[in-house]
Amino acid sequence: MSLINIENLHYRYNSKGNWVLKEVDLEVNSGEFVVIVGHNGSGKSTLAKMLNGLLIPTEGDIEINGRSTKDRDNIWNIRQQVGMVFQNPDNQLIANIVEEDVAFGPENLGLESMKIRDRVDWALKEVGMEEFKRHAPHNLSGGQKQRIAIAGVLAMKPKCLVLDEPTAMLDPLGRKSVISTIEKLNKSLGMTVVHITHFMNEAIKADRIIVMDGGRVALEGTPKDIFAKVNQIKKYNLDLPQVAQLALELQKSGLDLPDDIFEVDRLVNLLCSLK
């Protein structure tokens, strides 16, 4: 059975408003790395908030591990299983010491203090921030704050991590550190990841890409499938990753290159072996 199961989901914020999400059918399997891309107003952030019951479907159903988010009795269990990281790093840290903030989630679950301590140390280690555990969050960089937020969610031992544009407010370096942290968690812990972004570059390593447009799922497939549909992607106001774009242009001008080049290293190697 899939971890997240979305069936015929419709959503609008009020009964007279426009539909923000329409006919969304999705499944996310355990251990999968799914990237949801879409430009502004495509409904991707709304979809994210539905995954842990912050918003409830107007029509249709979302099931996490077989439990519907519509049933209020499930809500705390679902929120523990689906951890969520938001866009603004400043507005999701609650305590003024890093380790206290990471402890916030497990404290809400009512765990024993020894157990919380273990989880906090473990989570900070997983995101590579253990040396900052006594620091104040406002002295850290955006990327570091975002990694603390990820640790705060990890400490609740979720089954799935939903990240709603976690890199949108970061500088390139911070972006890189957050992305590599997410990728590492997916690989080493087998954590299911749903990463929502509007940067195509961040979708390269995904198992599956879902392109949202106007509240619907417009495209779905592996990075290779999606990036091949250049014209459709352009239509949804999205760009190919730069390297893929370059490879495509080189292909057009007559170089003999394969279709699935999304990474700089691979392109460099292929170009060097060409002559």
Binding site: F86, I94, L111
Partner: peptide, 16 residues
């Protein structure tokens, strides 16, 4: 963000 991290007031909350 607090709600997403299961915050539901002081009841049933423990401390590290």
């Amino acid at each position: 963000a607090m709600e997403a991290r299961c915050y539901r007031g002081g009841e049933g909350r423990s401390r590290m």
